[in-house]
Protein backbone atom coordinates (compact mmCIF):
# COMPACT_ATOMS: atom_id res chain seq x y z
CA UNK A 1 0.00 0.00 0.00
CA UNK A 2 1.46 3.43 -0.89
CA UNK A 3 2.19 5.88 1.91
CA UNK A 4 -0.77 8.29 1.64
CA UNK A 5 1.05 11.24 3.20
CA UNK A 6 4.06 11.02 0.95
CA UNK A 7 1.88 10.40 -2.10
CA UNK A 8 -0.13 13.50 -1.27
CA UNK A 9 2.95 15.71 -0.93
CA UNK A 10 4.31 14.43 -4.22
CA UNK A 11 1.01 15.00 -5.97
CA UNK A 12 0.89 18.55 -4.68
CA UNK A 13 4.45 19.22 -5.85
CA UNK A 14 3.62 17.75 -9.27
CA UNK A 15 0.51 19.90 -9.53
CA UNK A 16 2.61 23.03 -8.93
CA UNK A 17 5.09 21.76 -11.48
CA UNK A 18 2.27 21.26 -14.00
CA UNK A 19 1.13 24.86 -13.51
CA UNK A 20 4.67 26.10 -14.07
CA UNK A 21 5.02 23.92 -17.18
CA UNK A 22 1.70 25.24 -18.52
CA UNK A 23 2.91 28.83 -18.11
CA UNK A 24 6.22 28.03 -19.83
CA UNK A 25 4.45 26.24 -22.67
CA UNK A 26 2.08 29.16 -23.21
CA UNK A 27 5.00 31.57 -23.33
CA UNK A 28 6.86 29.27 -25.74
CA UNK A 29 4.00 28.88 -28.20
CA UNK A 30 3.16 32.58 -28.19
CA UNK A 31 6.83 33.41 -28.77
CA UNK A 32 6.88 30.72 -31.49
CA UNK A 33 3.98 32.29 -33.36
CA UNK A 34 5.46 35.79 -33.20
CA UNK A 35 8.91 34.59 -34.21
CA UNK A 36 7.77 32.39 -37.09
CA UNK A 37 5.42 35.09 -38.42
CA UNK A 38 8.27 37.58 -38.28
CA UNK A 39 10.80 35.18 -39.81
CA UNK A 40 8.38 34.14 -42.56
CA UNK A 41 8.34 37.75 -43.76
CA UNK A 42 12.12 37.73 -44.19
CA UNK A 43 12.23 34.72 -46.52
CA UNK A 44 10.53 36.23 -49.59
CA UNK A 45 12.52 39.45 -49.08
CA UNK A 46 15.97 38.03 -48.41
CA UNK A 47 15.88 34.41 -49.53
CA UNK A 48 18.14 31.81 -47.98
CA UNK A 49 21.16 33.39 -46.39
CA UNK A 50 22.90 33.13 -43.03
CA UNK A 51 20.25 35.33 -41.34
CA UNK A 52 17.18 33.45 -42.57
CA UNK A 53 18.82 30.03 -42.12
CA UNK A 54 19.56 30.91 -38.53
CA UNK A 55 15.98 32.09 -38.05
CA UNK A 56 14.69 28.81 -39.47
CA UNK A 57 16.92 26.86 -37.06
CA UNK A 58 15.64 28.91 -34.11
CA UNK A 59 12.05 28.29 -35.26
CA UNK A 60 12.65 24.54 -35.40
CA UNK A 61 14.30 24.62 -31.96
CA UNK A 62 11.33 26.53 -30.53
CA UNK A 63 8.84 24.02 -31.96
CA UNK A 64 10.85 21.02 -30.74
CA UNK A 65 11.20 22.65 -27.30
CA UNK A 66 7.45 23.20 -27.12
CA UNK A 67 6.85 19.60 -28.08
CA UNK A 68 9.16 18.34 -25.34
CA UNK A 69 7.51 20.70 -22.86
CA UNK A 70 4.13 19.22 -23.77
CA UNK A 71 5.45 15.69 -23.29
CA UNK A 72 6.93 16.59 -19.89
CA UNK A 73 3.60 18.16 -18.92
CA UNK A 74 1.82 14.99 -19.96
CA UNK A 75 4.16 12.87 -17.82
CA UNK A 76 3.70 15.15 -14.81
CA UNK A 77 -0.07 15.11 -15.09
CA UNK A 78 -0.29 11.34 -15.42
CA UNK A 79 1.86 11.07 -12.31
CA UNK A 80 -0.57 13.35 -10.43
CA UNK A 81 -3.44 11.21 -11.66
CA UNK A 82 -1.75 7.99 -10.56
CA UNK A 83 -1.00 9.43 -7.12
CA UNK A 84 -4.57 10.58 -6.68
CA UNK A 85 -5.90 7.21 -7.77
CA UNK A 86 -3.60 5.48 -5.29
CA UNK A 87 -4.85 7.79 -2.55
CA UNK A 88 -8.51 7.18 -3.25
CA UNK A 89 -7.73 3.48 -3.50
CA UNK A 90 -6.11 3.65 -0.05
CA UNK A 91 -9.08 5.44 1.50
CA UNK A 92 -11.44 3.10 -0.33
CA UNK A 93 -9.48 0.13 0.99
CA UNK A 94 -9.78 1.40 4.57
CA UNK A 95 -13.51 1.85 4.05
CA UNK A 96 -13.69 -1.78 2.94
CA UNK A 97 -11.71 -3.00 5.97
CA UNK A 98 -14.08 -1.17 8.33
CA UNK A 99 -17.20 -2.61 6.69
CA UNK A 100 -15.74 -6.11 6.67
CA UNK A 101 -14.96 -5.94 10.41
CA UNK A 102 -18.46 -4.65 11.16
CA UNK A 103 -19.91 -7.59 9.27
CA UNK A 104 -17.61 -10.07 11.05
CA UNK A 105 -18.71 -8.78 14.45
CA UNK A 106 -22.34 -9.12 13.37
CA UNK A 107 -23.29 -5.48 13.98
CA UNK A 108 -26.86 -4.54 13.10
CA UNK A 109 -27.25 -1.70 10.56
CA UNK A 110 -27.98 0.87 13.28
CA UNK A 111 -25.09 -0.39 15.42
CA UNK A 112 -22.81 -0.12 12.39
CA UNK A 113 -23.87 3.46 11.83
CA UNK A 114 -23.32 4.38 15.47
CA UNK A 115 -19.94 2.62 15.37
CA UNK A 116 -18.95 4.59 12.29
CA UNK A 117 -19.84 7.88 14.00
CA UNK A 118 -17.89 6.80 17.08
CA UNK A 119 -14.93 5.97 14.87
CA UNK A 120 -15.09 9.49 13.48
CA UNK A 121 -14.86 10.87 17.02
CA UNK A 122 -18.44 12.06 17.53
CA UNK A 123 -19.81 12.44 21.09
CA UNK A 124 -22.78 10.36 22.25
CA UNK A 125 -25.01 13.47 22.31
CA UNK A 126 -24.02 14.35 18.73
CA UNK A 127 -24.66 10.83 17.47
CA UNK A 128 -28.06 10.87 19.18
CA UNK A 129 -28.94 14.19 17.54
CA UNK A 130 -27.79 13.00 14.08
CA UNK A 131 -29.77 9.76 14.34
CA UNK A 132 -32.75 11.35 16.06
CA UNK A 133 -32.65 8.94 19.00
CA UNK A 134 -32.18 9.30 22.75
CA UNK A 135 -28.59 9.43 24.11
CA UNK A 136 -29.42 6.38 26.19
CA UNK A 137 -30.15 4.36 23.06
CA UNK A 138 -26.82 5.39 21.53
CA UNK A 139 -25.00 4.45 24.73
CA UNK A 140 -26.66 1.02 24.71
CA UNK A 141 -25.79 0.52 21.03
CA UNK A 142 -22.17 1.54 21.68
CA UNK A 143 -21.95 -0.97 24.52
CA UNK A 144 -23.16 -3.64 22.08
CA UNK A 145 -20.53 -2.54 19.55
CA UNK A 146 -17.74 -2.73 22.14
CA UNK A 147 -18.91 -6.15 23.36
CA UNK A 148 -19.21 -7.59 19.85
CA UNK A 149 -15.79 -6.23 18.82
CA UNK A 150 -14.20 -7.48 22.03
CA UNK A 151 -13.06 -4.05 23.23
CA UNK A 152 -13.64 -2.50 26.65
CA UNK A 153 -14.13 1.12 25.60
CA UNK A 154 -14.01 3.55 22.70
CA UNK A 155 -10.21 3.95 22.82
CA UNK A 156 -9.71 0.20 22.45
CA UNK A 157 -12.35 0.02 19.75
CA UNK A 158 -10.62 2.71 17.66
CA UNK A 159 -7.19 1.18 18.22
CA UNK A 160 -8.44 -1.97 16.47
CA UNK A 161 -8.46 0.02 13.22
CA UNK A 162 -5.30 1.98 13.96
CA UNK A 163 -3.51 -1.35 14.25
CA UNK A 164 -4.85 -2.34 10.86
CA UNK A 165 -3.50 0.86 9.28
CA UNK A 166 -0.09 0.58 10.98
CA UNK A 167 0.29 -3.03 9.89
CA UNK A 168 -0.03 -1.85 6.27
CA UNK A 169 2.14 1.25 6.52
CA UNK A 170 5.06 -0.62 8.07
CA UNK A 171 5.20 1.94 10.88
CA UNK A 172 6.30 0.20 14.08
CA UNK A 173 6.47 1.78 17.57
CA UNK A 174 10.22 1.22 17.61
CA UNK A 175 10.79 3.21 14.42
Amino acid sequence: MPDPDQTDTMARRDRRRATFLALTLALQTVACVFFIADAARDFPKIGTDLHTTFEALVAVALIVGTGFGALEMRRTLSRVQQAEEALSLASGAFDKVVRRRFAEWGLTPSEAEVALFALKGLEVAEIARLRGTAPGTVRAQLTQVYTKSGSANRAQFISLFIEELMAHSGLAPAA
Partner: peptide
Protein backbone atom coordinates in the same frame (compact mmCIF):
# COMPACT_ATOMS: atom_id res chain seq x y z
CA UNK B 1 -4.42 38.39 -31.90
CA UNK B 2 -1.05 36.73 -32.48
CA UNK B 3 -0.78 35.77 -28.79
CA UNK B 4 -4.28 34.28 -28.83
CA UNK B 5 -3.37 32.35 -31.99
CA UNK B 6 -0.41 30.87 -30.11
CA UNK B 7 -2.57 29.84 -27.15
CA UNK B 8 -5.15 28.32 -29.51
CA UNK B 9 -2.46 26.25 -31.26
CA UNK B 10 -1.19 25.08 -27.86
CA UNK B 11 -4.69 24.01 -26.79
CA UNK B 12 -5.22 22.14 -30.07
CA UNK B 13 -1.83 20.42 -29.69
CA UNK B 14 -2.84 19.48 -26.14
CA UNK B 15 -6.08 18.00 -27.48
CA UNK B 16 -3.93 15.55 -29.44
CA UNK B 17 -1.09 14.74 -27.02
CA UNK B 18 -2.59 15.85 -23.68
CA UNK B 19 -3.99 13.81 -20.83
CA UNK B 20 -7.39 12.87 -19.42
Amino acid sequence: GYAAFGLLLLRLLWGLVGTG
